[in-house]
Simulated assay, not measured.
Amino acid sequence: MAQGTYVEKSFERDTNYITDRIAADGEWPVEAGRYRLIAARACPWANRTIIVRRLLGLEDAISLGLAGPTHDSDSWTFDLDPGEVDPVLQIPRLKDAYLERFPDYPRGITVPAIVDVPTGEVVTNDFAQITLDFETEWTEFFREGAPDLWPQDLREEMEPVMHRIYTEVNNGVYRCGFAGEQEAYDKAYDRLFTALDWLEERLAGQRYLMGDTITEADVRLFTTLARFDPVYHGHFKCNRSKLTEMPVLWAYARDLFQTPGFGDTTDFTQIKEHYYVVHTDVNPTQIVPKGPDLAGWATPHGREKLGGRPFGDGTPPGPPPEAERVPTKDNPLVGPDGMVQVEA
C-alpha cells in the first residue's frame, strides 16, 4: 500500500506497477466471472475500486476478495476468510497469485490487484488504470442506471485535476507521514494544505469536482478525505486542520459518504487498525486510538443547495450484496441493509 523509497529523506512512491489491462480486444479479454478483484477496505487505493465496482453494478461480473486490514512485510493475507484462505483462489496470501505469474516478482505485494481465476495469476495491480477500465471496458455488464464516471467530454479537464489530487493529496499525506527529516516534512505539509485550500475554493460553488455529477475524480478524493481525521491528521502529522474544521470539504465529504457506494464501502475500524498496527516505524506501540467520533458523517451537509444530480441521468445503486456489507461494528452508521443511515 505504501510501497516506496526515501530520496533525501522524503517519501517517493514506487509506481512501477503491472500495467496489463483487461480490455475487450486485449490479451486479457473482458469476460464475466473470469476475474477476481482483490482489495482491502483499509487501503484507500483499493477502496476506490470497491466504490467504482459498486457504483457501476459490476458485482456479478467481477467477484471480490477481501484481505484483512493488517499484513506483514511479505504479503496481504486472507485472514478474514474461513481457514484464512480466499474461498475462490484457495490461497492464504495475495503474494501467491503474484508468484504464480512472476516466480521472481521483486516488488511489493499491493492491493488492489486483479487475479485471473482459471490460472490463479495476477493480471494487474495498476490501481489508477483499473477503475478507468471498469468504466470503459466493462460497459456490457453495467447495471441499469449506472453513472458515467469518466465522461468523454470532461476527460481533458479531469486529468490535471486528478493528477493534482494524486500528487498533492492522495500521496501528499504519505509524504508527510513518512518524511525522514524536518525539511522534507515541512515541504510536504505545505504542499498538502495548499492543495486542500484549493479544493475548498473549487468546491465552494459547485457540488462535485467536475460540476453537477459524481465522477472518477470524486472517488479518488473521497478515500483520502474519509481517512483524514481517523488517521492522517494525527498518525501522519497532517494537523493544521482536521477535515471537520474545513467547512467546504467536510460538507462535500459528508455528501459523498451519504451517497450509496461511498459510506457503505467505508470500514473505519479496518482503516484505523491498518495504519496504526502496520506502520510500526510511525507508531511503534501499535496502539489504535478509540476516536474520532463518527456521528458527524451522518449529519445534514447542505450541499443540495448547489443543485446537481449525483448520478446524472443514472440512478443510485441498491443495497450492497449481503456478503459484501461492512459490519455495523466497523461502521456504526451503516444499517442492517448495508446502507448508510442518514440523520434526519
Rank of each mutant, 00 (worst) to 15 (best):
Y252L: 09
F222Y: 07
H233P: 08
L37M: 07
R254T: 11
P284V: 05
S10M: 11
H279V: 10
K187M: 13
F78C: 05
D116L: 13
R227K: 08
R93Y: 02
D229G: 12
H274E: 12
H301A: 06
K237N: 13
T265S: 01
F311V: 09
E121W: 03
R54T: 10
I114M: 14
W150G: 10
V277A: 10
D197T: 03
G234P: 03
L221R: 07
P319E: 14
D104R: 09
A39D: 15
H235Y: 12
G261I: 14
L294E: 15
G120H: 07
E157A: 06
W76M: 15
L89A: 15
V117W: 09
N125D: 15
T266M: 14
R48D: 14
P69W: 13
F142V: 11
W138M: 01
P260Q: 05
V169S: 00
A61H: 09
V326E: 01
P332W: 15
A113K: 00
T269I: 15
L99V: 10
D293R: 09
T265M: 01
M1L: 07
G68I: 06
R325F: 08
K9R: 04
M210S: 03
T119G: 09
L199Y: 00
A146L: 06
L249W: 04
F127K: 00
A323H: 01
F268I: 11
E156W: 10
E273M: 02
F127V: 14
K305V: 10
P147A: 00
Q270R: 15
G4I: 01
A67T: 10
V88P: 04
K290R: 12
K237T: 03
P29D: 03
R207A: 04
Q90D: 11
A195H: 01
E200V: 01
L55M: 04
F141Y: 11
K305Q: 00
Q3W: 02
A298T: 12
L99G: 03
V111I: 03
P289C: 05
